[in-house]
């Protein structure tokens, strides 16, 4: 299958190994990955902060970039960005009166998937042949859980990883407190939520906290390293891309 990678702005700029891991994983499974190079961002940050007019050119850039590319399905290693593609881009276009762009956005959204959806639903694979010998706990991010309804697909994938010691995160479905610009606008409440999430993570004695969204991991990881907890955050894609030959994120901090 020819799969277009939506790198996501945050992984492109801050966590390129997440995107590289997606490429590595999909190629290992025998698929062809394309990266439409003019892509930047899905527009979610602008939408969720209330700047819908400013979101429009960002959405247009995304839609036009992927329209020009040839691929069967698109994938993003992010529940949040896929949620924005599916539930916000057409709304932004429609609100500005651009019905044509809205329709094109909806067409693209119809073949855009979050990573665990792509693997389990589209490619029909659960054991991706990964090896990851670490104690790991999984935080289901809000948008993957409640916008996309990925359910336990990420956990199915993780359970099939060889060598992993997967431990349940208490109160897992509770938000980590990131919320995009919420983390800045309501910094105190965001931090209070983070503190509770971190205490849950630490209660598992896991060495790694994983999730399907780099943005939430930026938040949780930012707290975990600030407090020198010794717990690392690793994206789901990095774990699934790991093999005996190359274990992602294995270099010590």
């Amino acid at each position: 299958m020819r799969i277009a990678l939506i790198a996501t702005c945050i992984a492109d700029a801050l966590f390129p190994d997440v995107d590289r891991s997606v490429v590595r994983l999909l190629e290992r499974l025998g698929h062809r990955v394309v990266f439409p190079t003019e892509q930047v961002c899905c527009g979610q940050m602008h939408v969720n902060t209330g700047y819908l007019a400013e979101a429009l050119p960002v959405v247009r850039q995304h839609v036009e970039t992927f329209e020009r590319a040839e691929f069967d399905v698109a994938v993003a290693p992010s529940g949040s960005c896929v949620g924005s593609v599916r539930h916000q881009q057409a709304m932004v276009a429609r609100r500005s009166g651009d019905e044509s762009l809205a329709g094109r956005a909806e067409e693209l959204a119809g073949r855009t998937y979050e990573l665990s959806e792509l693997l389990v639903d589209v490619l029909g694979v659960i054991d991706v042949g990964a090896y990851y010998p670490h104690r790991v706990t999984y935080h289901p991010t809000c948008h993957s859980l409640r916008m996309l309804r990925v359910g336990d697909k990420p956990l199915q994938l993780l359970r099939a990883v060889e060598g992993i010691d997967l431990v349940e995160l208490p109160d897992a479905q509770s938000c980590c407190g990131f919320g995009g610009t919420f983390a800045l606008k309501n910094s105190d409440v965001s931090t209070a939520m983070l503190a509770d999430k971190m205490s849950r993570v630490l209660s598992t004695s896991a060495e790694v906290c994983t999730a399907g969204d780099s943005s939430c991991l930026l938040h949780i990881g930012g707290g975990l390293t600030r407090l020198r907890t010794g717990v690392r955050t690793v994206h789901l894609a990095q774990i699934l891309a790991s093999t005996r030959d190359e274990v992602a994120g294995s270099v010590t901090v």
Binding site: A11, D12, D19, E27, V34, T37, T191, L194, G222
Partner: peptide, 28 residues
């Protein structure tokens, strides 16, 4: 004030892609 931020990487994903896959966005 409550969270670290990671240092930006030496190479972004798109730079890696361009370096390893060239200008051909079709990949291998």
């Amino acid at each position: 004030r409550s969270r670290d931020l990671p240092a930006p990487p030496a190479e972004t994903f798109r730079q890696w892609w361009a370096r390893t896959r060239g200008d051909d966005d079709a990949g291998p």
